[in-house]
Structure formats: structure tokens, C-alpha cells
């Protein structure tokens, strides 16, 4: 609800704010002030006119700063409000963590394409863990089927394969999700700074700050970002109540979402859901800063590659041949 209102505000802002464009570009602070002033005016007008759609918005949620600018008290109060809202909505106690990155940790992921059989267990474990919309369907992981004879050929890969059993003869499988790039083009393309790279390498999105322009989606060379065209739906009985503010908390219509390396699990030291569910053990995860980690062993001993290396996005998601 608040999201659709914010979008309306920004949408008209783009048109009305044309006269300020030059100053806005020069000084981000001015831009910020202008945006905020504009929002105040809009909100004031809306309140005066009694716009029915905005009646549920509280002043706090509407004028909430971006996540990175929030102080500990503001965060706590916002999280408490959200927990209350979601607990009521889904009928079970919901917790929302804001646990920050650990200093000594740089996350990395590796996937053994000599083992993956394309069973899509990871896709659905991810949906469940991260509260992705069931209808319309949002999948953070896409498993691409490719021809063994042709090798890795993204242009002709098939994500819609169906079969009695997998692997299908003559094919291999390449699951693709967010590559958590060290130089993420999505982050550079975001006009409002709603997405950024955390100190442990996870690229996250502030859903409350995202304006839904989808620039990040067109900038991502991996098709890893997904847009909520309508209100996402997750059945209350299937909701995962253990959430992270920057991760699997329910999203709203008009925002972009993507894989966060299961930030709600991995910041607590656990493996991501897709790693634990993979029946062939093709998925590996760990701390790149720890020389004894599984991920370091793979990087040092196996034949490793990244997708679209030539783009210099420097993914933290590696593919390797374990055989």
C-alpha cells in the first residue's frame, strides 16, 4: 500500500521536478531535500483531499529514510512495526532481523556443473525459504538446460524443460541466480541508491526505497532480478516467519527482488537453503576469507569459471567441474 503511494509520488515528481533537474544532478543533498519537500507537499495535498488509497499509511513509514541512514532506534521501531504487521497478517509470530555483516566474512558460492542434474529442488527450496510470490510466480533461481555438444550457450538455453526424469541424456544444467558481483552493474544503475553491496559481499535491496524503475533489471547481465508486477501472494501457512529486513521479508507490488545468499540464514552461520536441499551436493558455500573453507578449497583445486567474465562484474558465484 505504502509502496504504490510512494510510486505515485515519484512518478509525478519526475514530471514536476524538471525545472530542478540541473541543481539536483549537481548536489545529491539538494536532490534529497527537494525530493523530501516534494513528498511533503504531495502528502499534505493527499491528506487534505482525503485520498482514500493512502489512508493506511503512517507518517513514519511514509517518511522513512533509506535503510542505511536509519539509526538503531529507528531501525528497531520500524522492525517492530513490521513484525507486528506481518504477525497479524500471517497469524504466526514473525521475526525480522537486521543483523549486519560480520567483519571477517566475505561470502562466496560455488556450483558444480558436473554434478547438477537439473532437478529444480533448489528453485522451490528457495521460494519457500525466501517467501517468493507463488502467484504470480517469482523464482530467484533459473535452471538452464544446455546441450552437451554445444557447451555453455546462454542464448539457446532452455529454462522450461520438463521430463519424467533428469538428467536428460545429452544435456547438462546450469542454475543461475544473482551472482553477487563485486562490481555490480545493478547497483551502479539504481537511480535512488535502493540497492547496494554489503561489506560481506551480498548485494541487497531496500524494498522500501526501491521505486520500481527496473533499471537494475536491465543492467544485470544474468537476469537475476525479478519485478513484482502485482501484489505478491504467499499462503499464510507457507510463510517463513524467520526473516531479514534486507532479505526474505515479504515484498510489495512494484519492487525488485533477487537472491541474497539467504542473508537471514548465512549471517547466522547457516548454509543457504539451496545448498542444503541439493540432492547431488552440487552447491557449495562459505567464507572466502577463511583459507580452510570449502569454497577456498574449490577455488584452489578445481577448474573454476564465472559467467560472462568479459563484463568484469567479478561474480562471487563460481561454477566448477568437480569431476
Amino acid at each position: 500500500m505504502s509502496k504504490s503511494c510512494k510510486n505515485e509520488g515519484c512518478g509525478s515528481g519526475a514530471g514536476c521536478g524538471g525545472a530542478h533537474a540541473a541543481t539536483e544532478e549537481l548536489d545529491p543533498q539538494v536532490e534529497e531535500a527537494t525530493r523530501r519537500e516534494f513528498m511533503c507537499v504531495i502528502a499534505g495535498c493527499a491528506a487534505a483531499l482525503g485520498v482514500s488509497g493512502c489512508s493506511e499509511i503512517t507518517h513514519t513509514s511514509f517518511f522513512q529514510k533509506r535503510f542505511r541512514e536509519l539509526g538503531p532506534e529507528e531501525r528497531a521501531s520500524i522492525v517492530a512495526d513490521l513484525e507486528k504487521e506481518f504477525s497479524e497478517k500471517f497469524g504466526k509470530p514473525v521475526t525480522i532481523s537486521t543483523q549486519p555483516a560480520r567483519e571477517d566474512v566475505q561470502f562466496g558460492y560455488a556450483l558444480d556443473i558436473s554434478r547438477c542434474i537439473g532437478c529444480r529442488r533448489c528453485v522451490y527450496a528457495c521460494v519457500k525459504e525466501n517467501n517468493q510470490s507463488r502467484d504470480p510466480q517469482v523464482h530467484w533461481i533459473r535452471v538452464l538446460e544446455m546441450d552437451k555438444e554445444k557447451g555453455i550457450d546462454l542464448a539457446h538455453a532452455n529454462a522450461y524443460y520438463d521430463a519424467e526424469t533428469v538428467p536428460r541424456p545429452g544435456h547438462f544444467y546450469l542454475p543461475v541466480a544473482c551472482q553477487q558481483c563485486d562490481q555490480p552493474s545493478c547497483v551502479k544503475s539504481c537511480p535512488v541508491g535502493a540497492t547496494w553491496k554489503e561489506p560481506d559481499g551480498i548485494v541487497v535491496i531496500d524494498y522500501d526505497w526501491c521505486i520500481g524503475c527496473r533499471c537494475c533489471m536491465s543492467a544485470c547481465p544474468y537476469g537475476a532480478r525479478h519485478f513484482n508486477w502485482t501484489d505478491p501472494s504467499v499462503p499464510a501457512e507457507e510463510i517463513n516467519p524467520k526473516m531479514h529486513y534486507l532479505g526474505n521479508r515479504p515484498r510489495m507490488k512494484g519492487v525488485v527482488e533477487k537472491c541474497t545468499f539467504c542473508v537471514q540464514r548465512t549471517r547466522e552461520g547457516r548454509y543457504p537453503a539451496c545448498v542444503e536441499v541439493c540432492p547431488v551436493g552440487a552447491r557449495k558455500f562459505g567464507n572466502l576469507s577463511d583459507p580452510n573453507s570449502e569454497i577456498r578449497y574449490i577455488l584452489e583445486h578445481k577448474r573454476v569459471f564465472v559467467l560472462k567474465n568479459e563484463l568484469n562484474t567479478r561474480p562471487r558465484f563460481f561454477y566448477f567441474y568437480g569431476l
Binding site: G269, R270, Y271, S293, Y297
Partner: peptide, 15 residues
């Protein structure tokens, strides 16, 4: 080394 096969638990501890 944790490369072949499946593990569950913690990347940073008990698995």
C-alpha cells in the same frame, strides 16, 4: 574437504 557430497548445518561451524 566438503567438495564432493552434501552437507548441512553451518558453513562456519557444526555441520
Amino acid at each position: 574437504a566438503g567438495v564432493h557430497g552434501r552437507r548441512s548445518g553451518n558453513w562456519d561451524g557444526h555441520k
